[in-house]
Amino acid sequence: MVYFQKMTPEGYKQIEDEIARLKKDRPRRIKILQEARSMGDLSENSEYTTAKMELGHLQSRLRYLDKQLRYAEIIKPDSTGKIDLGSSVQLQFEDDDEVQDYKIVGRMEADLAAGKISFDSPLGQALMKKQAGNVVEVEAPAGSYQVKIISVR
């Protein structure tokens, strides 16, 4: 069974950009490894060991990111006004007058500090397919709370 990773077009582009950056850096890392190898005895050559390890990490990251793209399912925002992957929302949490902006994204793109919440997080799950004006109950590990949806874009 193949599991497709849901993500926004922006998340897909971010992965493509990181792959391009890593591929651009690979020749430099290979050159460092070759230079370290030419220094002599490899068993006591810390430069060689470090360069080999760093190149291995880069190659591993490239394989991981490539797999993410291969199994990506790009979801575009719902145009019906209901919250879906890619939607930007303004929320007002209970007992708080402040309105906060969030974007609903795929699991790999989530970054709460940047205002990006995963569609499968407790808050994301509660918001999915709801509309502006709805009040939703969020069942989180720390307890339940209510959120009012101010707007959906």
Results as ranks from 00 to 15, higher is better:
M1D: 12
V2N: 03
Y3D: 11
Y3E: 15
Y3M: 09
T8S: 06
G11N: 11
G11C: 03
Y12P: 02
Q14G: 06
I15D: 05
I15E: 02
E16Q: 13
E18N: 04
E18Y: 10
I19H: 01
I19R: 04
A20M: 09
R21Y: 06
K23E: 08
K23Y: 05
D25M: 01
D25A: 08
D25R: 06
R26F: 12
P27L: 00
R28S: 13
R29I: 15
I30G: 13
K31V: 08
I32E: 15
I32P: 07
Q34D: 07
Q34G: 11
E35W: 06
A36Y: 03
R37V: 05
L42W: 04
S43Y: 09
S43L: 07
E44Y: 15
E44M: 08
E47V: 07
T50S: 15
T50F: 12
A51D: 01
A51I: 00
E54S: 08
L55E: 00
H57E: 10
Q59F: 10
L65P: 03
D66A: 09
Y71C: 05
E73N: 07
E73L: 07
I74C: 01
K76A: 09
P77S: 00
P77N: 05
P77L: 05
D78A: 01
S79H: 12
G81S: 10
K82R: 06
I83K: 02
D84Q: 03
L85C: 07
L85P: 04
S88G: 09
Q90I: 06
Q92P: 02
Q92F: 05
F93M: 02
F93V: 01
E94K: 11
D95H: 15
D96V: 01
D97M: 11
E98N: 10
V99Y: 00
Q100R: 15
D101A: 14
I104M: 11
G106W: 06
M108P: 04
D111T: 13
L112N: 12
A113L: 14
A114K: 10
D120V: 13
S121Q: 05
P122I: 05
L123M: 10
A126S: 10
K129D: 15
Q131N: 12
Q131A: 10
Q131P: 01
A132E: 13
A132P: 11
G133H: 07
G133M: 02
N134D: 14
V135C: 10
V138K: 10
A140S: 14
A142N: 14
A142H: 04
G143F: 03
S144C: 02
S144W: 07
Q146L: 09
V147E: 10
V147G: 07
K148V: 00
S151R: 00
S151F: 00
V152D: 08
V152I: 01
